[in-house]
Design a binder for these strands. Sequence first.
DNA 1: GTGGTCTCCTA
DNA 2: GTAGGAGACCACA
Length: 970
Amino acid sequence: MKKGDHLFLVDGSGYIFRAYHALPPLTRKSDGLPVGAVAGFCNMLWKLLQNARDTDVGVTPTHFAVIFDHSSKTFRNDLYPEYKANRSEPPEDLVPQFGLIREATQAFDLPCIEMAGFEADDLIATYARLASEAGGETTIISSDKDLMQLVTDHVSMYDPMKDREIRIPEVIEKWGVPPEKMIDLQALTGDSVDNVPGVPGIGPKTAAQLLEEYGDLDTLLSRANEIKQNKRRENLIEFAEKARISRELVKLRIDVPVEHGIDTFELAPPDGPKLIGFLKAMEFSTLTRRVAEATGAEVAEIEAAHVEVEAGESAHGPDLDPSPAESDGDAATPAKLAAGIAEACAAQTFDHAGYECIRDLDTLKLWVEEACETGILAFDTETTSLDPMQAELCGFSLATKPGRAAYVPLNHKSGDGDLLGGGLIEDQIPQKDALEAIKAVMANPAVLKIGQNLKYDWLLMYRLGVEIVGVDDTMLMSYVLDAGTGSHGTVSHGMDALSERWLGHKPIPYKELTGTGRKQVTFDMVDLERATAYAAEDADITLRLWQVLKPRLAAEGLVSVYERLERPMIPVIGRMEHRGVAVDRQILSRLSGDFAQTAAGIEDEIYELAGERFTIGSPKQLGEILFGKMGLPGGSKTKTGQWSTSAQVLEDLAAAGHELPRKIVDWRQVTKLKSTYTDALPGYINPETKRVHTSYALASTTTGRLSSSEPNLQNIPIRTAEGRKIRTAFVAPEGTKLISADYSQIELRVLAHVADIPELKKAFADGLDIHAMTASEMFDVPVEGMPPEVRRRAKAINFGIIYGISAFGLANQLGIPREEASAYIKRYFERFPGIKDYMDSTKAQAREQGYVETVFGRRAHYPEIRSSNPQLRAFNERAAINAPIQGSAADIIRRAMARMEGALADAGLEDVQMLLQVHDELIFEAPESKVEKAIPVICEVMENAALPARALSVPLQVEARAASNWDEAH
DNA sequence: GTGGTCTCCTA
DNA sequence: GTAGGAGACCACA
């Protein structure tokens, strides 16, 4: 190395952590291996090296090395055993990336330097000194404050994330002291992340001011008795020794006996094929292309064979093996790491007394700062209601690492006092101030906010003007991992169940604080000590669950399911619920009146026919009248031995000429419409927004569908003319329209794709009537002039297939003998043998591995498919056949929803708002002037929703329409 | 008040 | 035959 040369030193270890938290998570498509930090690292190296070639841009390195920490134990631990002692394990989807980043460095043909007993920072300091002594310049690729002490006229730093150079003026600007005083400054402030003690009560501002006044640490400590502020003086005297130790801890060693001389770092031209081989193995397509372009086209041609070897080798390497099954030895596979983490977490204990109750703004700000440093923040709100659209905030809790959690009470009231329950407890941070203090960290995607059922907290905070960006949800992780496990899919993804299962810890029951029944109080009435124990524990548990579940995602290859299909739904569904839908109270009220009148008329006729008054709505009483008193031929019995009075039974009796059963059916229809819809819906109109805000459950179904409740807007009537009237009450406000866009036959299309049925695929490709085509194939009837009854039967069979057909079910549906239904199914399987194959292989898969998968890799578990109970087994087989079809369709519309807002915004349609989802349909509200432009955008997003992840072999078709109410729009 | 049963609304 | 949620009734506490 000589004068004019320029050494680049990349702080590899620092970069990994920073990239992991700052960059969007990324997984290798083929197996879900987490590679986000590796991707960032490769992109950065490539950019830096490009500058080396293009001499017009940026600084040109002549020497280049990447420096890593070797292990956690260094000479600093001998100085101060607690050094870095409170540092938690790295996130588990980061762990496999450590090895990969070293491999990446080697693929770039760059020196990969590390040394036992020393941190990367010490090596960097030593090399920077050596370079300066040789007359060269040094750029340290890092933004770590610990390295800023090294900055001189010839040593600068470069923050690759912010594309910013850090020289002497930048250090002074940021810290208030020049680089050479950084060591003293850090000695005073300490570092909570690395557990450097420092002097309590002294932050960067105070430290800079003191150093300005006294010059350096030794002078300051020796003259500490001159300090005016009592507390500060006492601390400086008491903790002088801690400050001196801290100085030794933060001072970097410039005399490490390095093994590799600086001259060995000389930059050579990149080995294109080697690098491309690695990048291809990582599946970084964009960068692979760039590198291929930059290194010449022919390199791209020879690369194929080379990559094959690299990919093959790496697939067996310990750091790359993502499969839990076939690992050998003590290799640190993601699965083993996940299991280890789970075991360690289950062994940890909980200390309620260790939780903090935050009652002043400064303390809250310290916690926020800490979260910014760790990049991780478990978050939970405590409120007065389960409805996030009506709830008032009582307080919120935070956790930054296991056992370190706090509750921030905001609106707690004292339990005693007058009838109103006393006033606000003193020393609570005003809500406005607290929200202001956390707003930035909540919006910062580099700090991961971890929640349990975070959609609730997201929506509540959104209502209060705080948007949360950068989220993880332990409930959704559990759902992705374990949907359907447990008998009848009874496994709960609720926090209490997860805590007991994974942490072996039973949380404080909510009811223990608030009581139950008439005496139940809202959370803001709970005293702060118990509220803190409960609320902080929730955040603590959430954080620990995250530590267990996140690595499992990688270990089980489910990262992309979580990232693509679950996590994006939190803000999307959150906004949909927040918008709600306009419902016309007058229309419902008028319909209620109409239904009441109709019902009253029918009731009179029923009493007349029955010869007495009775409770028509009681199946028990009704059964006694029909099958006892009137002696009608009873159909089936229910499982409790009662006569069934189901619509089917009553219809059959009506068809046989009996008058009363018909009246009962009619009465049931109108009373159902009245009680469930026209009477109930107005009660859900939010008094503030005047709209109805349903709640979508993201983790309630085994297949991946959403469910809707309070009210359920996914079962609004449509089949009968009377029922449809209810849809006219769902309206578009003045000046807007409702747009309804629904997938045509999406499940049959998915079936055609997954079972690979050429006839079905062709029919869809040609835009034919699929049920008529099926009928034509099965019954040898031409599509032209086909009797409706024939088509109806084919349609029932098609649906039956999706539901995991049985002769019994089909016979019931069509009202034909079981033998006939059986013959239909046989015929169907003969005409479409692929269907039978699909069903058999799906059942076999479910039996062997316990779950089936959607096209996008979502799993649905059916453990009971191995049951010896034939009924239970058959039920699970049908469900297992259905799940990939229903679930893939659910995945597709989720993908469409995740992309919709962005696509609309890109088209200048941000005021077109997605309101509702009904499994294969999306409902939007749009300004009238935007309708025409919005419809094609919506259809485009929905029809292409499977891409680019999967190319379906069948086109998806969407029909969309706009009108002023839901009935006309659909 | 809570939970089970029956019935019925949707995709 | 799949996947859901909800209201009414009724027996139990």
